[in-house]
Amino acid sequence: MKKYLAELIGTFSLVLFGCGAAVVSGISTTGPAGAGLLGISLAFGLAVVVMAYAIGPISGCHINPAITVSMLVAGKLKGGDALGYILAQFAGAIIASGVLYLIQQGQPGFTMGEWALGANGWGEGYLAGYSTASAFIAETVLTFLFLFVIFATTSKWGNGTMAGLAIGLTLVLIHLVAIPITGTSVNPARSLGPAVFAGGQALAQLWLFFVAPLLGGILAALVWKGFEKE
């Protein structure tokens, strides 16, 4: 249970810090403002860094179902633990989004619009208006690269003490590319939390933020198995 609780707290922190930076600092459906693209990217990446060192020794700090499924495919996690991790991650993301919603209700004139609370999306009306194909490709490829870095930095060839920093910085880079396209998911839990409260398009488009990151994570696990056979 300690592992699952750690995953819940870690995912809660990722969503609250990352989506909180986007929402509270001001990110609209027409583009990031306030903290800006770099600031929001750093919020997500640094959240991973601090949680990696905080809960990494307890649960491995997945805080992302795509990572958990990828580890399962790679044979580094048991099925029972994987299910517990994913449920805890979903719970943490939803609770964090609920807290963010309560905070935002205290802002004068706050209304829940489409893709509210930092929800992911694509198409007309969302940030740069990228197509479904662009969104799917970006989320799949960037999740693949994210997981490849995770496998490499935590392997026998990696530097374990620096792994958390490398993984967090990779997420910063991913956000710098993907925020205008999808708001950046690479994490089904991070997408689910805001969508539950935002509803509408955020909920209707949620399928892509499950399928693409999971596909990217599975592909990374299969590729990494090839490296381990060498």
Rank of each mutant, 00 (worst) to 15 (best):
T132L: 15
G20I: 09
V141K: 04
I95P: 00
F12I: 11
L117C: 05
G92P: 02
L38Y: 10
A33L: 09
G60E: 04
G45Y: 04
V149D: 01
A43N: 06
A21P: 11
F136D: 10
T170Q: 08
G129A: 11
V23F: 06
W157Y: 14
E139F: 10
F90C: 14
G84V: 03
L72R: 12
L169K: 05
N187H: 01
G217A: 13
Y130V: 12
G164L: 03
G56Y: 00
Q105W: 04
F136A: 15
F209G: 07
A96H: 03
Y85K: 11
L171E: 11
S28I: 09
S131Q: 07
Y126E: 14
P65F: 08
W224E: 15
Q201C: 05
A221Q: 01
L100G: 06
T154H: 01
P65S: 07
A93L: 01
G168A: 06
T154R: 03
W224F: 15
N64G: 12
L42M: 15
A66G: 07
I67Y: 08
W122E: 14
V24T: 13
T11R: 10
F151C: 12
L215G: 01
T182H: 14
C19N: 15
P180K: 09
A195N: 04
G34I: 13
G106Y: 09
I167R: 01
F12M: 10
V69E: 09
L176G: 08
A221K: 00
L206S: 01
F110A: 11
I181P: 04
G109V: 07
P108M: 11
I137T: 12
K229H: 14
A178V: 07
A220E: 10
V50F: 06
G216L: 06
F12N: 08
G84S: 05
V15C: 14
L100V: 09
A152R: 06
I27Y: 01
L72F: 15
I103M: 13
L208T: 13
H62I: 07
C19W: 03
A202D: 04
H62L: 10
E230Y: 08
D81N: 11
Y130F: 11
M71H: 15
K225D: 03
G10E: 02
T170D: 04
W122R: 13
A198P: 04
V177L: 15
A22R: 03
G20H: 06
K229M: 15
F90Q: 07
P57M: 10
L117P: 05
L208C: 11
I137E: 10
V23P: 05
A128V: 09
G216K: 06
E230V: 13
S185F: 03
L72H: 11
P213H: 05
P65W: 04
A220V: 08
T184N: 02
G79C: 07
G56E: 05
T11W: 04
L215C: 02
A178D: 14
L206P: 00
A135K: 09
P180E: 05
G109A: 09
K78D: 15
N159D: 14
I95S: 00
T132N: 14
